[in-house]
């Protein structure tokens, strides 16, 4: 087979990076009207919270993780997992990148499902 020049390869890889960066930007900046947070543990839905209705921030204690619920955003405050990936991810404000704690099998997703009986308190 014919070889591909280094220059062509660099152009291909640069284009890949640019396309990826553009899609990440679009994903994270995307505005979302309804903010329904769902907290899963071991694949089971434990909490459903309408983040737009949260007035005072509070925490939810799970066996190995602590979730911080605030108005319009949600984050993993602390966790006992070794990698701390979930904590480092910080606050999420739309459904693009759910917070996942793989070692503890905990996940926080934001959906825009309307008509869900979302609870606002604890």
């Amino acid at each position: 087979m014919k070889s591909i020049s280094n220059l062509k390869l660099i152009v291909i890889f640069a284009a890949l990076i640019l396309a990826s960066a553009a899609s990440i930007l679009i994903m994270t900046e995307r505005r979302q009207d309804a903010l329904i947070a769902e907290i899963y543990s071991e694949g089971k839905l434990l909490y459903t919270i309408d983040l737009n209705k949260v007035t005072e921030s509070y925490t939810i204690e799970l066996p190995h993780n602590t979730v911080l619920v605030e108005h319009g955003q949600i984050s993993m405050k602390c966790a006992d997992c070794p990698d701390q990936v979930c904590v480092r991810q910080g606050k999420i404000k739309n459904g693009a990148y759910p917070i996942v704690c793989l070692p503890n099998r905990v996940e926080i997703r934001i959906t825009n499902k309307a008509g869900v009986d979302a609870v606002t308190g604890r």
């Binding site: 990076i17 990826s20 960066a21 899609s23 994903m27 996942v100 996940e107």
Partner: peptide, 13 residues
Amino acid sequence: SPAIIWYAPWLVI
């Protein structure tokens, strides 16, 4: 969780 697929651009970079 199919939404995790949105991490693909991060992983490509």
